[in-house]
Write a protein that binds this DNA or RNA. Sequence first.
RNA 1: UCCCCUGUAGCUCAGCCGGUAGAGCAGAUGGCUGUUAACCAUCUUGUCGGCAGUUCGAAUCUGUCCGGGGGAGCCA
Length: 460
Amino acid sequence: MKRIKELLQTEERDIEIELKGWIRTKRDSKDLIFLEINDGSTLKGLQIILDKKLISEEIQHDLGTGASVSVSGILVDSPAKGQSVELQGKSLILLGNAPAMDYPLQKKKHSFEFLREIAHLRPRTNTFGALARVRNALSFAIHQFFQQRGFLYIHTPIITGSDAEGAGQMFQVTTLDINAPARDSNGKVNYNEDFFGKKAHLTVSGQLQAENYACALGNVYTFGPTFRAENSKTTRHLAEFWMVEPEMAFCDLDGDQDMADDFINYLLNYILKHCPEDLEFFNQWILKGTMENLQSVAETPFERISYTQAMKALEKAPFDFQFKPHWGCDLQTEHERYLTEQWIKGPVIVSDYPREIKAFYMKQNEDGKTVRAMDVLVPRLGEIIGGSQREEDLDKLKLRMNQMDLDTQEYNWYLDLRRYGTVPHAGFGLGFERLIQYVTGLQNIRDVIPFPRAVGTIKF
RNA sequence: UCCCCUGUAGCUCAGCCGGUAGAGCAGAUGGCUGUUAACCAUCUUGUCGGCAGUUCGAAUCUGUCCGGGGGAGCCA
């Protein structure tokens, strides 16, 4: 059985074909039925022409949007405009009908809000089919990029015993009876009785474990799900999302930035080459200008500025921000958008942030005020990558952890990297769904993952 | 957690200075000798998100609860 993607490309004609797929639209006249069939292999469908005499009236009636069919026929040049080839049907089997009275998808545009309510059926639409193909292609490209460069793919754990990893609220994992948990003599929950013998959570990042392997094997990466229990209802946050985290030994912040830049450029070039049809669809229906923008970004290195330079630019901005920028404050959404959309007019890497607003593990600069951190900001979305050179000096790291009230005992295994054969190393995290948003132009992050999990949302 | 918007037919939406509902699409029926999200004609569909209040009268005004969306913060 050939798929539509192949059939649309083949030069062969007058060959016998068996095709299976789902009906997108039906158009009929007195004697003929035209079906457009999609099988998911590509955005476009194949047109089937059927003589009404070949099919019982009962089946004709059931050939509506959403029904699944198997058609045998001859692939021919189409005499009509609109497609170059079509299938002259000889026989048709209705595999499963989709009663129009209650099948929710129609041959028209639906709102994203409505499609979210039928997330189990939305992959049958053009947009979500294209998204699935783009997600797939970019996942593959991510592995290919790192594999070509000799990085090892490390499977970091999903369940973690660390109480906090400096990256937001965590989901607790427990087998204790939440109505009557084991308690100690002080009446507090006794985690010795819990499954792991201590408190456990879903990971918020594979970074700390990736560092362990980088500091043994050189260059590694993880690509897996991560979880944040933050109560944030926005178009850029999910409770469960996928993150790519490379970690490189003998690498400083400059090398980290180079890698981030190469990485994004590679992914954009890959997707432009392998999914042009799907991207063109997004360009036309979701966000005009995406194609052009991706092409230009894929070719040019990112601008790099320091946080301090960014602050100066913000202070000189020709209008007032809601939140007045000052050295030491974190970049607000409005600041990021100004920098990327108006000042640089493209993606930008901002580095060397104030120590106070960044995580404990980031390498401290000699100025005593800033750390070797970098964020890649893109227009419309803001932060798509966050990374840093890690602090490899044991004493400095411990001091910082104490200042931030972290239990160094809990992190002994992490500190051992600095005790024994410590090396400069660096890495970053890329939010996969934000990358998909960037590439497709889709506004809401809940629409770029098959089954979104967000606060209050876990149907399907 | 805070702020704003919104909820009317299966879908998208109009009606909202009060007088108990309407369009397009979808659906049904018929027509059309190759259609392109076909076209033409006819027809069907509603606890106007729930509850309470104001009023002779509420889709319309008020309160409240629930759902959806957007923004902020946090971040990827």
